[in-house]
Simulated assay, not measured.
Amino acid sequence: MKVENAVMPSPEQAMGFFGMEEDGPFVMVNLLRFKEKAEYADGSDSHLTGAEAYARYGEEVRKLVEGLGGKIRYQGRVAGLLLGEVEDLWDVVALAEYPSLAAFREMAMSPAMHAIEHHRKAGLAGQLNIRTKPGEGF
């Protein structure tokens, strides 16, 4: 299995994701890996760690998610791996619940999101975002 962290989706990934059928609430699993030091495009805040830069984004995105009727369900530091193998572990796992794909798209395309995404880019080395549906599976 190939695992490839990314900071932003490709246009094809974004079109495929947002082109999915609207089917109600979902939970996004976010596997986050931070840069050792923040890397802002303008060179500012170079004293911050990647995690500190991302925390600026995280606090503001929490407000956006809650404003849509969603909720940050969980956030925790990755402490170890019991089963499987990956080259590098992620630093943090976060679960965010969204009321709909339309609500998520509205947030992702909003001016408010655009205004904070520089913190995300400054702090993240890469991530995986996995959309899950409650009550489905096995």
Rank of each mutant, 00 (worst) to 15 (best):
K2D: 13
V3M: 08
E4V: 15
E4F: 11
A6M: 15
V7S: 03
S10C: 08
P11A: 10
E12I: 06
A14R: 02
M15I: 15
F26Y: 06
N30D: 02
L31G: 01
F34W: 06
E36A: 08
A38F: 00
E39H: 10
D45A: 15
S46T: 14
H47C: 12
Y54P: 00
A55R: 07
A55L: 06
R56G: 09
G58R: 02
E59R: 14
E59V: 15
E59C: 12
E60H: 14
V61S: 08
L64N: 11
L64V: 10
E66D: 07
L68C: 13
G70Y: 03
I72N: 12
Y74H: 09
Y74K: 09
G76S: 01
L83T: 12
L83V: 13
L83P: 00
L83Q: 12
V86G: 00
D88V: 14
D91L: 06
L95F: 00
P99K: 09
L101S: 06
L101G: 05
R105P: 10
E106S: 13
A108G: 11
M109P: 10
P111E: 07
A112Q: 13
M113G: 11
H114Q: 15
E117P: 13
E117G: 10
H118M: 11
K121S: 12
A122M: 02
Q127S: 12
